[in-house]
Write a protein that binds this DNA or RNA. Structure first.
Ligand SMILES: [Mn+2]
Ligand SMILES: [Mn+2]
Ligand SMILES: [Zn+2]
Ligand SMILES: [Zn+2]
Lengths: 144, 144
DNA sequence: TAAAAGATGATAACGATTCTCATTTGACAC
DNA sequence: GTGTCAAATGAGAATCGTTATCATCTTTTA
């Protein structure tokens, strides 16, 4: 945890941003909820528990900054809110998601799985892939 | 075109919905812009050209209805608006997209490409796939 | 024809996100 | 340490896509 924050701090400094107390509190919330898919409002509520003076706008600004630095990925599961997902450190690509249409749960797939598909796309469509989003919608193992 | 509308009409009737003039005008716009990825506002503007009395709410309602019937798919490329994409008739799954981070263009991939990946997901995660969303972000062939 | 149900259009309401601006903080020079 | 100044913050207003409301119109049913 502390090492992870230290590395994010360095990453911020390398682009001449500071790790302010508000930003650190926000990053801690994200780290503590690594498996969740929190909205900005969710993050705001959780940060407030530890840092009650923080403003919603600051949370939005911090999430935007972290997205820019690729510390988090901003995703949209079609429910009208953006969600923020911590990227695995050193992961080449964003992980995939399994959204259950019964219970609404969101599970993660960390394996790449797309290597072959990406090769085909790069070759056949002459498209240089920088990132991807893959979400499966269906029935999760708990709801079957 | 006419046959396609006829089939959509039947699909509506089978669920006891009617193909009103407003709905038909909206469907026509979608058919005429099959390769685009129009927002509700875009559709509204285009329908107005042929049917000036139509209201924005009706367009939203029609798009919602068509989404429910799986005539269109509602997608979100992360720019703050939902876009509506006509489904290929008889296509088992939604097609994929190539979003260019240089010029903003969105190209389509109609090929499935995910058959193997889906088999792995169904088996290893015990997840029953009903649909998917796959988008690649990168540099398109025109911008290279 | 009369009544009921379904659709529509205008517009108000809503909610997530962004913007504005006065104030505060933190890094750096002296 | 003190002063300076750009960067960051918090409160609340503004924006904007979308949804809800409701009176009116249209179509179906009895
Ligand atoms: Mn995730
Ligand atoms: Mn498409
Ligand atoms: Zn489930
Ligand atoms: Zn391009």
């Amino acid at each position: 945890m502390e090492q992870r924050i230290e590395r994010i701090k360095k990453q911020l400094h390398s682009q001449s941003y500071k790790l302010t107390p508000q930003r650190e509190a926000t990053v801690r919330v994200l780290l503590e909820h690594e498996d969740d898919h929190l909205s900005a409002e969710d993050v705001y509520m959780l940060v407030k528990e530890k840092y009650p003076e923080i403003g919603l706008a600051t949370v939005y600004r911090t999430l935007e900054l972290l997205t820019e630095l690729k510390v988090v990925d901003k995703i949209n599961f079609g429910d009208g809110v953006s969600r923020y997902d911590l990227r695995q450190e050193g992961a080449a690509h964003f992980h995939h998601h399994l959204v259950c249409i019964e219970c609404g749960s969101v599970d993660e797939i960390q394996e790449d799985l797309l290597e072959d598909v990406e090769k085909v796309v790069e070759d056949r469509w002459n498209f240089e892939i920088k990132d991807h989003r893959l979400t499966f919608h269906g029935i999760c193992h708990r709801c079957k």
